[in-house]
Lab assay of single mutants.
Amino acid sequence: MPSETPQAEVGPTGCPHRSGPHSAKGSLEKGSPEDKEAKEPLWIRPDAPSRCTWQLGRPASESPHHHTAPAKSPKILPDILKKIGDTPMVRINKIGKKFGLKCELLAKCEFFNAGGSVKDRISLRMIEDAERDGTLKPGDTIIEPTSGNTGIGLALAAAVRGYRCIIVMPEKMSSEKVDVLRALGAEIVRTPTNARFDSPESHVGVAWRLKNEIPNSHILDQYRNASNPLAHYDTTADEILQQCDGKLDMLVASVGTGGTITGIARKLKEKCPGCRIIGVDPEGSILAEPEELNQTEQTTYEVEGIGYDFIPTVLDRTVVDKWFKSNDEEAFTFARMLIAQEGLLCGGSAGSTVAVAVKAAQELQEGQRCVVILPDSVRNYMTKFLSDRWMLQKGFLKEEDLTEKKPWWWHLRVQELGLSAPLTVLPTITCGHTIEILREKGFDQAPVVDEAGVILGMVTLGNMLSSLLAGKVQPSDQVGKVIYKQFKQIRLTDTLGRLSHILEMDHFALVV
């Protein structure tokens, strides 16, 4: 994948999101292997301009796509893939009243899908469409860049269908997702969380590099694949309309690839034109409109599966009536509230959605109805927002919020430890010299600072030695090549209790 991002070429006709291997024109390309080798690009942008032909009021008969309808489940399912879809609609009884809503608040519980998330729908649909058009064949390999849930859905379907599955996901995604993927037989590649989507090191860039190296491999490409919004247009939206008897006044959905909100909203605009569509985008993402909503100094966020630093091709923002931004604290607070007060075992993005819903639905009156999409299960986040310690460490809970008995030293300040200034190293000294210094002084790690004293990161003896043994660096290389740029900081005025929580999850903390 090139470091400079080429513009994806656009073909003359058809839909841009065809499933299957992508040609340089962004659509299915038939021909000899030699032709494909000559024409197939190194990668295709996940934010390529959409060429979708959908228009409100256009006859369904003019759609270029294969459409399906929700099917009634048999008493005995032939395999677990038949437990994807037909998820329950559940009334939220307490939270709406707590925040003064007059309307009825309903939750579409997508964590009841077989793999635990709304992404099971698009995973199965992308595979079925690729099999139907002859792209996927027995023994082929599926590769997908994902925040985890699409990966789980694909790995689940691949396990049943017999495909090899490789999932490329950023490091910030939970260990629970990784464990589930491994249990399903998927191979996992992790990428830096802070890598831009168009960087060769991003999950998108690495996935395309693997595709170019592995024979008979395919990126189904949830960011561009029409099967993504079509899955929701054909099934999720129809289920909502049936469950609500066609009567709903507002739908609120958090947005990642945009397939969920695009597919549902398009069908609702056709069948229930008075329904307002509300999009939820986390602070630090750029999906919301108008652009002024996205202006923030924050560039990272903890909530998973929603928000991006690019506009995915499948996201149709014209069908969203209003956007709201959400933050991590309210997302996790509301997710825990949904679990504790409503018994809905949902993930953090569901918290984002409901946090926005109780604001947006203030305009609705008694007798009206708001539906929220709860995308995934708490299963993926047992060591994250479900953990009091994690919430404390991230600053989303305060010590006084917890009532468990603490040891005698818990409320003492870090400054009472009488710490001395640490050994520091410059980023320009060599790895070999740094190892000598650390061994001589008896230290395992040291902060790396520039000549102005600005902290650049941390270097550890173990990481340097393993990097040297693996051949990633040489003793003569500058130590700046092996620094940890993500590390926890703590102030002298913070409590030892807070430091204790940090050290339970990290090997060190830097006192500043």
Rank of each mutant, 00 (worst) to 15 (best):
L248A: 06
S61E: 12
A8F: 08
H66K: 04
N194I: 09
S199Q: 07
L81A: 05
K172C: 02
P49N: 08
G151A: 01
P215E: 08
P138W: 09
P215Q: 08
G85S: 07
V90G: 04
G115C: 07
S227K: 10
F99V: 01
S32A: 12
D245V: 08
G57I: 08
R209G: 09
D120H: 05
N113Y: 01
A195E: 07
R45S: 14
P6I: 02
G148C: 01
H232S: 05
E40G: 15
L184T: 06
V189G: 08
Q55R: 13
H22M: 02
G162V: 03
L241N: 03
C275G: 06
L181F: 05
S175L: 07
N113F: 00
Q243M: 07
I188H: 04
G100S: 05
L56C: 09
I261L: 07
I122W: 00
D198A: 06
L251H: 05
I142G: 02
D133E: 13
R132G: 09
L248P: 06
G11L: 09
V178D: 05
L156F: 02
E40F: 15
S50Q: 08
A107S: 06
G185Q: 01
Q222S: 02
L56Q: 10
E34F: 11
D234E: 10
V189T: 10
C52R: 02
K137D: 08
P138Y: 15
S50E: 08
I167C: 09
A186S: 04
I127V: 13
G185S: 04
V178M: 08
M169H: 02
P215W: 06
I261P: 00
E128I: 12
D140N: 03
Q243V: 07
V255P: 06
E176W: 00
L42P: 09
A48I: 09
T235H: 02
P74W: 04
P138N: 13
P78K: 08
E171C: 03
A24M: 10
E110V: 01
R91A: 03
L251K: 03
P12M: 09
N194E: 10
T257H: 01
V204H: 09
P21D: 14
V255H: 02
M173Q: 05
C165S: 05
R121K: 05
T53K: 06
K271P: 05
L220M: 06
Y233N: 08
L42I: 12
A38M: 06
